[in-house]
């Protein structure tokens, strides 16, 4: 950081751009987001209920949950837009909302969809939000706006008024706004909402490349396949409570896994699997024998070896991990109705 910026301009040259990582108010902590007992009540309703999030720095954290489970409200709490009814949050090592002024310049966010002044062009909207951040240098504003638009594929539509944007174009512009400066943390609330397949892929690639640069990404989504592809960590909300969080691996491992053996010798195979202590599914009489694969200390290759040794003609062998979707439904219930 230079101290040599001319007094009076206030636009300290290289402020917070190149060296975002050095501006940490944090007493060393490896959590980008940490909440303790975070609670938000709206009149009688508890929208967020005692949430203890722990998002490690550098993680891509998928924040899941059914409609109305409190994801957006949690994000609003993290960004200091609403005050917590109880509990608290630390973002990039500093208490929120107490330190909004020092924390938020290092955070890019998309909250509950994009929002812009419809009578301004895309470029003018971005310049406006950028001007609101006093750590964003005026000198580089145009270049940064152009770069952000380019990153979301809007460079040809930047001069268009936002009221003439399509849903996906607005969404892209919202993401561009989050990318105006180099950020330490990106909070993206349903970033792929309304995007075309190319846009979705692009956002996925963007998240990956940002994460590779060391940016922590906190992304809420309903698209579990997406989450499965990009996230390193997952947290699941249900009716205001955080019902699970951890690495994607832990998360999957906690769910059901099954062994599927394709063989004409079903009875023999069943026998072998039972010997390993696996809970074999009832006799379907088919060519596939399935067993619950709960215990992790049985190596799949040992099972295959035993099957072959017993003369079972193995035509196919598969360990099927629970999909994120199954796990999600296990945690949040089958019910379609919004809970609260």
């Amino acid at each position: 950081m230079t101290d040599g910026s001319p007094a009076g301009t206030g636009m300290a040259g290289d402020a917070a751009v190149g060296d975002a990582t050095t501006i940490s108010t944090a007493p060393a902590t490896d959590l980008a987001i940490e909440t303790y007992g975070l609670t938000k009540r709206f009149r009688s309703q508890v929208a967020v209920d005692g949430v203890d999030l722990a998002v490690p720095r550098g993680a891509v954290f998928g924040f899941l949950g059914p409609n109305g489970s409190g994801k957006t409200t949690t994000i609003r709490l993290l960004l200091g837009l609403v005050a917590a009814s109880a509990g608290g949050a630390r973002v990039l090592g500093a208490d929120m909302p107490r330190h909004v002024d020092s924390v938020l310049p290092r955070v890019g966010a998309l909250v509950e969809g994009p929002a812009f002044s419809p009578y301004l062009s895309g470029v003018a909207n971005l310049r406006r939000f950028d001007a609101a951040d006093r750590h964003a240098p005026h000198r580089t504003r145009s270049a940064r706006v152009d770069e952000a638009l380019d990153r979301v594929g809007l460079s040809h539509a930047g001069r268009k008024k936002v009221h003439a944007y399509s849903l996906g174009m607005k969404q892209r512009l919202g993401i561009a706004n989050a990318l105006l400066m180099r950020r330490e943390l990106l909070v993206l609330d349903e970033p792929t909402n309304g995007l075309d397949p190319q846009g979705t892929r692009e956002v996925r690639a963007l998240i990956r490349s940002l994460a590779d640069d060391g940016t922590t990404v906190f992304v809420s989504s309903h698209l579990l396949a997406e989450v499965e592809q990009v996230c390193s960590h997952v947290g699941v909300m249900s009716a205001g409570r955080l019902v699970a969080q951890g690495t994607l691996e832990e998360f999957r491992a906690a769910g059901e896994a099954r062994v599927l053996v394709q063989t004409p010798d079903a009875a023999a195979a069943r026998h072998v699997l039972a010997r390993f202590g696996l809970d074999v599914d009832g006799d379907g009489g088919g060519a596939v024998v399935a067993a619950h694969f709960a215990s992790t200390d049985v190596a799949p290759e040992a099972i295959v070896a035993a099957l072959v040794a017993d003369g079972v003609r193995v035509r196919g062998f598969e360990v099927e991990r629970a999909s994120l979707e199954q796990r999600f439904v296990e945690l949040t219930g089958e019910g379609f109705d919004v809970v609260q």
């Binding site: 101290d3 007094a7 009076g8 301009t9 300290a12």
Partner: peptide, 29 residues
């Protein structure tokens, strides 16, 4: 902030004038 508390965090201050200049400049912007 909604809490409206004054930021009391200790930190190594840059010269106050520079910081103030930035605040003023940012506000003008």
């Amino acid at each position: 902030a909604p809490a409206g508390r004054v930021d009391g965090e200790a930190g190594v201050s840059r010269p106050a004038s520079t910081a103030r200049a930035r605040v003023i400049g940012g506000t003008l912007s």
